[in-house]
Amino acid sequence: MIVDVLLFKITLLIYFVATICYLVGVITRKEQFNRSAKWILIGGFVLHCITLKVRWLTTGITPVASLHESLSFFAWSLIGIYLLFDLRYRTPMLGAFISPLALALMILGAAAPKKAPAVNPMLDSWWFPIHVTLAFLGYGVFAIAAMAGIMYLLQERMVKSKKFSGLFYRLPSLDTLDSMNYKCLTFGFPLMTMGIISGAIWANSAWGGYWRWDPKETWALITWFLYAALLHGRLSIGWRGRRAAIFAIIGFCCLLFTFFGVNLFLSGEHTFRSFTGE
């Protein structure tokens, strides 16, 4: 228990250093900062994997049962997917947007109570890890889509208004950012869909019903429809660029509400009671 919290804190610190490195790299436009930031991030990610494994072994269930664990898992999937993305797109600017987001999730996770939740027999199912892993990988991919969307809007604004700041030279081309949006959508949407389906199957085995209109389920469905609309718009109507970027950002906001808002404002089966330490 103490070991995994300590590991978590070290991971957070490493992510913090990586974030600073990315930001310094973007401001000073020095390549070496971006390079070291990436390696620091990789180091942090490896440690994060160990942290999650230790937590898993300690609590005995997939470490997504409490808010603290979920936030940590969210940050982990976000960084993991970013690192995969970086293999393809190699854009340190994206890192400068992703790492602060992951850091924010980690800080929130550090604020949440770290006590292991009482083992709920419902969670003791193979569907649980499948459901949460798919869902969080989807979250990570959509987070990247949203960040790429913000970058797109920034860059598009500069190209359109013909007023350029230093960021203009650092941000990737509009085409690259738009293709990230598309890539994220083609990966994120199936992940999310499978996440929801696996959740429904799991719910059926646990409660004997596929869908119970629990607030989280409802919001997940709303989010799913948003992304479905975007995917449809992209594939058949030719949505792209600004509209797709805005959609990706709205979709991610919706997703964050599904994740946080439902826990904080609404109640249902997905609510983490451990948020208040109970």
């Binding site: 860059q155 190209v159 203009f168 990737p172 081309s173 509009l174 085409d175 690259t176």
Partner: peptide, 9 residues
Amino acid sequence: ELARKIFDK
């Protein structure tokens, strides 16, 4: 150069 910022390649 501008075209590259829009189209990449």
